[in-house]
Design a binder for these strands. Structure first.
Lengths: 338, 338
DNA sequence: TATTTTTGCTAAACCGGTTAAGCAAGCTTT
DNA sequence: AAAGCTTGCTTAACCGGTTTAGCAAAAATA
């Protein structure tokens, strides 16, 4: 027994399928269908267990009520939480989420964007990996609704939702300075994303503002995210000159590896090295030394991104708006910087 | 300028759209289209920047090359990693993933199943929450291809991919016994899922096999996953009778909360309490006492689930098969059970 | 030369809805 | 009594592809 279509209902009642369509879309009244007929249509629809075929609806309207999401890696707690918020907010407005992980690789994100375009998503939320500028510029020119999240490209007019990275980084460094740490290092990844640059700049500014007795010490890791690289970086920092007494990690992924490495080196936290890290995954609380964190407002970020996107999808304006949202972070002091 | 359709190409060349469709689907030869014409069609297609409208293709074929995924929570590292593997494996076969999080709530999963059915996904991978038996039975009767993951219902013939929970739990308990721990507690959630029952049974059997000097101590938490409940449970266990010297946690979520609570109670691990936990999230390695873990083969689970599902989607058999896959876990010894 | 086969292409149905336009019958107005 | 309005419905185009059946002309065969 196949699925019932509108035609089946129409045949059963000896009416046209237009009538059935009107009734089932609640437009019976405005199309002057009689009350008895409306009742009968609903009866037969239930009887035949009628379920509308969404695809044909999409086909007609060109809309799929689906949003594509590209993030670095859904199994990374930062993106997992963000994805969760995005899913929830989208669901409220009747949108579904197709997700894919780019691993910060522009070739992957390009393939995934192609895939999403073919999938006829109504819009895209993307944390653009370094080197994906052209892809985003294309999105803009193709007038596909999109919102950037966590990063943006200053040269491309876009909707985006980020945090105020400069201030967050500046304040965290300032905090360590006030705590009387003197040799404060900053461990980050070597990429051309504004997000990370801003964090570096915030750190550098705070060190500079603190006076001549402070030396900026920045280590940029390759983007590969290997633990061995973190190991080497920390080794280099610890042994050079007067060594270090505090580290600011620019992401939870680096922070996690950093905490592992520090433990392996037999150093105590905060005794030998104080630690502050961007992001606040659950495990920072149960780390051997609970990690002081710069927590991002993931709920707000996710919600805002979805709201911006849906606004753009559902607006009929020719010129896409570009709203820029920068949210505040929350500083959570724990033992690691004690 | 709108998007070019097959008709536009046909018009430009003064041929029928059937011809264009044949050529673009690589069926030119078998439909005896001349070589020059094939060449011309491709030329014009490029010229007009033709992109096929997927929706109409779906509409015709009734397939969307999309898989629906329902797990408890994508921001939980266990499901995040699993989701990642599923995404990757599906992508290889040209399938997309729509995901949603049920929070172990059967009402939510029911709504999400409805949503996915309406979304015309070709099949569904689901970690069914407790109480969702009827929903799964419906899936079966509606002949929608699906694969259960992480749990299953013995009474419903289904494809599923799980781990050998009984053995994993038995072996872990045995390990603690061999390590000379005497008062070994098992902390789990109160639900009717086989997965958790098997873990309990494995624990109980090991305790029983160990002889009369061992007492089974099982605490079942409500499913709400509140930290306060974990706190109470551990308090109760520690203060009753001779107290406890080891805990086996039945999931990483409980394990994480357990480690927090133990720290808050000022107990040392493994000095006061040894700990072993199911699952192996990244942070177990950097916990204040790195946690001995029962790691699940998430990569194999994800891959297998996708393979089973796609096999079922793409087979034309009337009677769906039900393949049952139980994978082995990997025991990773760390300091917490030293 | 008459018939069959091959070649190269077209026509049109089809998937399942949505929606603008229109029509006949009955009722109201002038 | 003619004209207009209302009611309750139908017709058919449309979205953009896929696919079956078939046709005319050219080539091959009897």
């Amino acid at each position: 027994m196949k699925k019932a279509s509108i035609q089946d209902i129409a045949d059963r009642l000896g009416v046209s399928k237009a009538l059935v369509s009107f009734v089932l879309n609640g437009k019976g009244k405005e199309n002057r269908i009689s009350d008895q007929m409306i009742k009968k249509v609903f009866e037969v629809a239930r009887e035949l267990n009628y379920k509308p075929n969404q695809i044909s609806k999409w086909f007609r309207t060109g809309k799929t009520q689906t949003i594509g999401l590209i993030i670095a890696d859904i199994s990374n707690p930062f993106f997992g939480k963000l994805g969760r918020e995005i899913e929830q907010e989208a669901y409220k407005s009747g949108y579904r989420i197709i997700f894919s992980s780019s691993d910060e690789n522009p070739e992957k994100s390009e393939r995934q964007l192609e895939m999403l375009k073919k999938s006829m998503v109504d819009g895209i939320i993307i944390a653009p990996p370094p080197g994906s500028n052209v892809q985003i510029e294309n999105l803009r020119q193709e007038k596909i609704p999109y919102v950037l999240i966590d990063r943006y490209f200053p040269e491309i007019e876009s909707n985006y939702v980020i945090i105020d990275n400069f201030t967050a980084s500046y304040d965290a460094t300032k905090y360590l300075i006030n705590k009387k740490y003197r040799r404060i290092a900053f461990l980050t990844v070597n990429d051309e994303l504004v997000t990370m640059n801003e964090r570096t700049n915030g750190y550098l500014k705070a060190i500079k503002d603190a006076g001549d007795s402070y030396t900026p010490m920045v280590e940029k890791l390759p983007f590969s995210h290997k633990k061995a690289e973190v190991y080497d970086a920390i080794k280099v920092l610890s042994s050079a000159g007067d060594g270090i007494d505090a580290i600011l990690f620019s992401s939870s992924k680096i922070g996690l590896m950093g905490m592992e490495v520090i433990a392996e080196l037999g150093l105590r936290v905060p005794g030998d090295i104080a630690v502050v890290s961007f992001d606040d995954p659950d495990f920072f609380k149960v780390c051997y030394s609970p990690v002081t964190a710069i927590a991002q407002p993931l709920e707000d970020m996710g919600k805002k991104a979805v709201q911006l996107l849906i606004k753009e999808i559902e607006s009929n304006e020719i010129q896409p708006k570009s709203e820029k949202v920068a949210l505040k972070t929350k500083f959570i002091e724990r033992k690691s910087s004690g």
